[in-house]
Amino acid sequence: MPALRRCRGTVDEYAAVAAVHRAAAERDGRDLHSVLEPLPDAEAVAALAGLDQRVVEADGRVVGHVFLTSWLEEDGTRVILHRGRLHPAYRGRGIGTTMLGWAERRAHALATTATTTVLGANAARAEPAATALLLDHGYAPALRLGEYRLPADAALPGTPSTEAEIRPVTDPTDHGRLWDLVELAYHGRPAIPVGTPAARRRFIDRAASMTWLAAWQGSELAGCAGLAHAPTPHLTELSVHPAFRRRGIGRALLLHALTHARRRHPANTDIRLWTNLAGPQRAYELYESVGFQLTEEFVRYRKPMPA
């Protein structure tokens, strides 16, 4: 009889949970090299130790994993997100429904009356069973994200001229200005977490290991592009100040960043990024115009917190 229980926190159990995630991804044909939703290894599973989570045990082995996390969005809504994976050999037995039920009950216990709270869940287009489960239980799509890859052999178009000066960010004290620009660029968009002092610190700490390019209009920071280098090169940010949009700055920043990535990494390395597929900015059109190809679509679901 399958049973939900607490994770024992051992190295072997972390490895077993990671194996469940991989088996599920391989069965569903998911992108195993995703940077938006990377497959967790045992170390990544161990990093979830502080979260609410359960494993499913059946036939003396771990066959499922479910955990919760939460954040506050810009409009004041608290999202409690639950994520679960079930080994393909144990699907079709009602175990996924049991995991979902536990996650919803736990989320209800964590909710407060101080803020509006909604349930959140994720599923890729390559996961029809998970998608059907969420839809059957009252979840509705709220956001569509696409992950893209630029093949290593794709030719880049020429970099357009722009009145802004684009140069690398070499002074760590400028990382705070980058954060301010990114926060401003995302202001007012749906499903965006609100910036906090802790988030600012995480951004600045991570920026030190990345390559950042900035577009300057005189002394004004007009835009920025952030490039991470592990586990594979991927663009994590491309933002333009609202006052400087529609001047070719975003395209110029993108092509400068891609050129830098190709110089730094081996010639056979693809470059990745992800973007909102339903946003009014239609950023995916810019990415597709320089050679990026859609590899996977991820849907973020929401459900009002039940009374």
Rank of each mutant, 00 (worst) to 15 (best):
residue 120 G to L: 04
residue 149 R to I: 11
residue 267 A to L: 02
residue 24 A to N: 01
residue 229 H to F: 10
residue 110 L to Y: 02
residue 46 A to Y: 07
residue 94 G to K: 05
residue 266 P to C: 07
residue 205 D to E: 15
residue 228 A to N: 12
residue 61 R to T: 09
residue 259 T to L: 01
residue 122 N to M: 13
residue 173 T to K: 10
residue 4 L to G: 07
residue 219 S to Q: 15
residue 247 R to I: 04
residue 205 D to F: 00
residue 35 V to M: 12
residue 183 E to D: 15
residue 199 A to M: 11
residue 65 H to M: 00
residue 130 A to H: 04
residue 181 L to N: 02
residue 204 I to G: 03
residue 162 T to N: 05
residue 266 P to E: 06
residue 131 T to G: 15
residue 214 A to K: 05
residue 105 R to K: 09
residue 232 T to F: 00
residue 235 L to P: 00
residue 83 R to H: 09
residue 131 T to K: 02
residue 23 A to F: 13
residue 141 P to T: 04
residue 111 A to C: 09
residue 291 G to M: 10
residue 265 H to Y: 00
residue 104 E to R: 03
residue 18 A to R: 03
residue 126 A to D: 04
residue 156 L to T: 02
residue 140 A to F: 08
residue 201 R to L: 11
residue 177 R to V: 06
residue 283 A to G: 12
residue 142 A to H: 03
residue 216 W to I: 12
residue 187 H to M: 09
residue 84 G to R: 03
residue 231 P to H: 13
residue 125 R to S: 12
residue 78 R to H: 13
residue 209 S to E: 13
residue 31 D to I: 07
residue 63 V to D: 03
residue 102 W to P: 01
residue 114 A to Y: 08
residue 192 I to M: 15
residue 226 G to Y: 10
residue 270 D to S: 08
residue 131 T to S: 14
residue 71 W to D: 14
residue 199 A to L: 13
residue 52 D to I: 00
residue 67 F to E: 10
residue 236 T to V: 06
residue 162 T to E: 00
residue 290 V to M: 11
residue 258 L to C: 09
residue 113 T to V: 11
residue 159 T to E: 11
residue 172 P to F: 13
residue 15 A to Q: 14
residue 5 R to E: 15
residue 115 T to A: 12
residue 192 I to G: 00
residue 305 M to D: 00
residue 38 P to S: 10
residue 235 L to H: 05
residue 121 A to C: 08
residue 38 P to H: 03
residue 230 A to S: 12
residue 25 A to W: 04
residue 35 V to R: 01
residue 66 V to W: 06
residue 288 E to A: 15
residue 251 R to T: 11
residue 59 D to H: 08
residue 59 D to I: 03
residue 225 A to Y: 04
residue 194 V to C: 04
residue 28 D to K: 08
residue 264 R to H: 13
residue 210 M to Y: 04
residue 62 V to G: 02
residue 11 V to Q: 14
residue 262 R to T: 06
residue 31 D to S: 12
residue 38 P to D: 09
residue 45 V to S: 02
residue 201 R to N: 02
residue 104 E to N: 07
residue 69 T to V: 07
residue 1 M to A: 12
residue 273 L to V: 13
residue 211 T to Y: 08
residue 13 E to R: 07
residue 21 H to T: 05
residue 117 T to P: 10
residue 57 E to C: 07
residue 153 D to H: 14
residue 253 L to E: 09
residue 127 E to W: 11
residue 77 T to W: 03
residue 98 T to L: 14
residue 258 L to G: 02
residue 16 A to G: 14
residue 86 L to N: 09
residue 136 D to T: 15
residue 120 G to K: 04
residue 249 I to M: 06
residue 61 R to F: 06
residue 109 A to I: 07
residue 238 L to E: 05
residue 304 P to S: 10
residue 89 A to K: 11
residue 142 A to Y: 01
residue 242 P to E: 07
residue 38 P to W: 08
residue 58 A to H: 08
residue 222 A to I: 06
